[in-house]
Design a protein around this nucleic acid. Structure first.
Lengths: 252, 252
DNA sequence: CCAAAAGTGTTCAGGCTACACCCATGT
DNA sequence: ACATGGGTGTAGCCTGAACACTTTTGG
């Protein structure tokens, strides 16, 4: 999807454009940077935080792993571009998606001047099949502790996304976006421990998380392995909106 | 500084470009959005949070107030563009500057497709003269509670910046960026009260803020008015870096 | 001496931390 | 019966909240 325009970083552009009303104009304009979106897609599996990467099929960085992303079309918003690229390259549909940061180091793309707006996404394990469905472009999950070398400045973008995720997880109830709709408290705790990189006390964690009254216990249990089945919960977004409006403060 | 290219939002572009190495290429390319930066410049004065606005001299929104900002040049980073525009339009030099968000609503600019990367800046009262120096473009401070109608989607940008500032102020010691280098605890408290919109208990506020050991008492007092002079402090950034590295958590 | 802001300590309640054992299940 | 993770309560500590009077200055 990336266009190879020139081997030079700097070029002088003349832009001629055709006006829709039929008049033709020729104007000199300042050269414009190309705009891309890149997505850091997080998942949680095997007790580890994962990132979805795609293997580049074309130069530059052919064969390298990179964040899914691509050029923004003029008539779409950045978020729309991010969702479109996610769908095209990874098959992912509706996921939690939030703008992260806009990266503009001058030589971040060896071809030409490219400015990239990074997004991060949180996916539930139910979404993970997607990569099997469409093997569009060889998407693959990597544990964040074992990501390969990345193309462009994608390592920096990933690093920024990780910091952001850690920060958000503390103060906003977004962890649920990484778990299946029905989950156990142990799964939630494992997620927090993996992302924050700390051990948490089981009793204190449960006490606190339940004290917010944001989790609804279900009439179901999660049975797996040779031990006591676990109570399943689901997150109650309605109640969260409600609480949030009266100045409520989620933390850890 | 803004170029009026076309009255239509959508145009088809042909780009011809001259390669530096002398070869000439003609390629068809996708149209590109124009990129701007807009800066929300905060100050603190008269016990109120202030924003710096400029009055537009050209259409669209001629005569309206707007955030300082302008087009990004291809060979500069976004932050450099923001600092350049700040210097050009408001005379501001070294200030705290941080990227806020990138705005991309399709019709946010009536002329053509413009995507804008917003920054917010925090200035000390010592910087405030600037607007008197260079009256470039009629820059003026407004209390955030009394901003006039703004051009483009700048009201939304300002709103986002305010939210961000409130959030940051709680968890990071950036309030000092809005005060003179030497300040009193009362000034600091007034700043917090103004930005957060809450009243704070004087004794508790002082206890907490001093407990971080980030403020150095100076051998000077601030005397003003018919009352006891106040102890002056300065923020100690070295100590802050130091504390931050051992996982220290500033709050309120 | 009056007005105006600076400065200062204690008490109480609620939240956070640390900590160890029984429960339900599958094999 | 045993291995495995699920589930539970308490006590001490610390932090945050509430609260009122004295000090220093200028006029």
């Amino acid at each position: 999807m990336r266009l190879n325009l020139s081997e030079s970083n700097f070029a002088l552009y003349f832009v001629s454009f055709l006006h829709f009303h039929g008049t033709m104009k020729h104007i000199y304009e300042y050269p414009r940077a190309a705009l891309t979106v890149d997505c850091v897609v997080f998942g949680f599996d095997h007790a580890e935080l994962q990132v979805l990467l795609i293997q580049r099929g074309i130069a530059p960085f052919k064969g390298h792993w990179a964040l899914p992303g691509g050029f923004v079309r003029v008539e779409e918003t950045l978020e729309a571009a991010a969702r479109r690229e996610l769908a095209e390259e990874t098959g992912l549909g509706k996921v939690f998606l939030e703008q992260l940061y806009t990266f503009s180091t001058v030589d971040r793309d060896p071809r030409e001047r490219v400015i990239s707006v990074a997004y991060y996404a949180l996916t539930k394990p139910t979404d993970h099949r997607t990569q099997a469905d469409t093997d569009a472009d060889d998407a693959q999950w990597f544990s964040v502790s074992q990501v390969p070398a990345l193309a462009f400045d994608h390592a920096e973008i990933l690093h920024t996304a990780l910091q952001r995720l850690r920060g958000k997880l503390r103060y906003e109830p977004i962890g649920f976006e990484l778990l299946p709709p029905k989950f156990t408290l142990s799964q939630l705790q494992a997620l927090y421990e993996a992302v924050l990189g700390t051990d948490l006390d089981k009793r204190n964690f449960r006490k606190k998380v339940l004290s917010f009254d944001l989790l609804l216990p279900l009439d179901e249990t999660h049975r797996e392995g040779a031990h006591r089945p676990a109570q399943l919960y689901r997150f109650d977004p309605v109640r969260y909106d409600h609480l949030q409006q009266k100045g409520f403060h989620f933390e850890l």
